[in-house]
Design a binder for these strands. Structure first.
Length: 581
RNA sequence: GCGCCCUUAGCUCAGUUGGAUAGAGCACGGGACUUCUAAUCCUGAGGCCGCAGGUUCGAAUCCUGCAGGGCGCGCCA
């Protein structure tokens, strides 16, 4: 945490101090919550620099009306020399106008904090585990995984920037039936590598060509020892090798997107360590697991459905629609049974958990939240647990939806898309919609190099700034903070927008909504482009002014700080701030 | 049948956790390039915030109901 308070935080403190003073003199009753007191820029800039609703929120507990309370607050605020004016407006808003020098100081703060501008310690080092991607290790990543990957990664960066101790985690589902299918598919490729004519890949196995090198590696390691052997002899050998190969593929895909997890947690290892059994034992002691019969499914009833007694987790106690089995009738763990143990273990090693899931898993949110809630209840310390659902992305090409079918192997891989349009485009585009809303990803639109495309628009603003610096250097001009007083009101207006960056990062982190950063950067870029163009009509508004080197130095310093904020924001999103376009 | 998500300008979407006159972009009309990068900017028009109630000083935002769209609803993962 820096010792330089950014401007909105500083004024929030000043207003808070006034409220404390009013409390001390008895105008406000003691110990009234100020949680709802906001200190933010008003929507309409003509209202001033900072607005607070303090009088409206606190009028009722103070047993007075908003305007009367506002009068008293304003009286205190006016004693502050940096506050040029404090006015009461509307139902009781207090609008403040800040002295110009305060904004000048803010430009310097950006300059001295540099890449640290916008970072804060509000998270107080609390440990947050963010689990994202967690794609099944049965093949390369496809576009269905992309949105969650980007949103999760940007969210992790955002939490890191706000002073949380973040663990980026990937849960590897390497214990279920699908990895047996993977091993069988690899066995076919293994026989193929030994020279056998295997023909078409059998129905139900993974047909993808990405398993060919896996088959070759198995042939090199084992020779023809297992080519005709029964499955029981080779399955346990082939499975971990195939999974490891798939995880290598997936890690390479993630690297293309600029994503690197800290922890890859293996479901198989979790089971081998007996964690689900431990969880079951503990839950039985709590009366939260019992042997019972599952209800008949509500929707279409499967033809082979019959009632069986299974160990059930009492998730209905925590709001789920029905209790959920943790083991199958053959005694092996269900996906949920292992996942439950996994989450309970995560919860014991973190102060808060976040999972990023695809919307197709929405139906399982309640049961897993129930599991974490059960742990919290049992241990007496609830662990905040948030499941963020990212909605489907519809791929579009030439105005037509791109069809994907995983079973046939006909899916658009993440790597192909990144190769086609670039990492920056993929990442930024995934953040240009709030995650809970569905989105289209149109190949034609996202590569368009125009203002229709937010990535280019923002990157262009940064490139323009870099270009200006290069050009200025040719003219013998350099950024300087010596004559910042010479800046005009229009110059300072740009600072006011840049100054919102720290509070935006904070609120985006708190709301766990990284897309807000993307929208903010678009706005900041727009303000910069407008600022820039003003110099086309009126040469006195240009940044490079050879006839006024002091003002030019100040403007260069200002513009450099705008570039700094854009760079910081893009950094959070994992998008490159290009210097030339 | 049940659960979750969505519904804001003709189109694609924001909306600072309940604040002031609901904002951008596209498309449409009018304008700015012998330039500090026009990959940009300025300007005009465009709204029953899906519908109906409720909560309060105040609702696009919170609650209830309804309609439309999406996702899901086996001992799968």
């Amino acid at each position: 945490m820096s010792d330089i308070a950014t401007i909105y935080a500083a004024y929030a403190e000043r207003i808070d101090a006034v409220l404390s003073a009013l409390e001390a003199e008895g105008t406000l009753p003691p110990e009234v919550s100020r949680a709802n007191v906001s200190v933010e820029p008003p929507r309409d800039p003509s209202h001033g620099d900072i607005a607070t609703n303090a009088a409206m929120v606190l009028a009722k507990p103070a047993k007075t009306n908003p305007r009367a309370l506002a009068e008293q607050i304003v009286e205190h605020l006016k004693r502050d020399p940096d506050i040029e004016s404090a006015e009461i407006a509307g139902p009781g808003f207090i609008n403040l106008r800040i002295a110009g020098r305060a904004w000048i100081d803010e430009i310097r703060a950006i300059g001295s904090l540099a890449e640290g501008y916008g970072r804060s310690g509000v998270g107080k080092g609390s440990r947050i585990n963010v689990e994202y991607v967690s794609a099944n290790p049965t093949g390369p990543m496809h576009m269905g995984h992309c949105r969650g990957a980007v949103v999760g990664d940007a969210l992790a960066s955002l939490l890191d920037a706000t002073g949380h101790s973040v663990t980026r985690e990937y849960y590897v589902n390497d214990a279920g039936g699908q990895v047996d299918v993977l091993a069988r598919s690899a066995h076919v490729r293994y026989r193929e590598a030994l020279g056998e004519n295997v023909g078409a890949i059998p129905e139900g196995l993974y047909p993808g060509e990405y398993l060919i090198p896996v088959g070759k590696a198995l042939a090199e390691e084992f020779g023809d020892k297992y080519s005709a052997a029964p499955e029981s002899e080779w399955l346990a050998l082939f499975r971990p090798r195939a999974v490891a190969a798939m995880m290598d593929l997936i890690r390479a895909d993630l690297a293309k997107l600029g994503i690197a997890h800290d922890v890859f947690a293996s479901e198989a290892e979790l089971q081998a360590a007996g964690k689900p059994a431990e969880a079951e034992k503990w839950l039985r002691e709590q009366g939260l697991v019992y042997d019972g019969e599952l209800e008949k499914p509500k929707g279409k009833t499967p033809e082979d459905w019959e009632p069986v007694e299974l160990p059930l987790f009492r998730s209905t106690r925590f709001g789920d629609d029905q209790d959920r089995p943790i083991r199958k009738s053959d005694g092996s763990w269900t996906y949920f049974g292992a996942d439950l143990a996994y989450h309970m273990e995560k919860a014991e090693n973190a102060d808060a958990l976040i999972d990023i899931w695809g919307a197709d898993h929405a139906g399982t949110v309640k049961r897993i939240k129930a599991a974490v809630a059960a742990l919290g209840e049992g241990k007496g310390t609830p662990v905040p647990f948030d499941v963020k659902l990212v909605q489907m992305v519809q791929l579009m090409r030439d105005g037509e939806p791109v069809k994907m079918s995983k079973r046939s192997g006909n899916f658009v891989t993440l790597a192909d898309v990144v190769d086609e349009v670039g990492k920056d485009v993929v990442r930024f585009t995934m953040l240009t919609r709030k995650p809970e809303a569905q989105m289209d990803f149109d190949f034609a639109k996202v590569v368009e190099a125009s203002k229709d495309n937010p990535v280019f628009y923002v990157q262009y603003a940064h490139a323009r700034i870099c270009s200006t610096m290069r050009k200025a250097a040719e003219e013998g001009l350099a950024p300087s903070d010596e004559a910042l007083d010479a800046l005009t009101a229009e110059d300072v207006a740009l600072v006011k927008l840049a100054a919102q960056y720290p509070r935006l990062v904070e609120s985006a982190a708190q709301a766990r909504e990284p897309h807000r950063i993307a929208f903010y950067l678009y706005d900041l870029a727009a303000a910069f482009h407008a600022f820039w163009n003003a110099g086309n009509d009126d040469p006195s508004k240009r940044v490079i002014l050879t006839q006024d080197r002091k003002l030019s130095g100040a403007r260069l310093y200002l513009v450099a700080q705008i570039g700094q904020v854009i760079r910081n924001g893009l950094g959070l999103l994992g998008v490159e701030a290009v210097e030339e376009m």
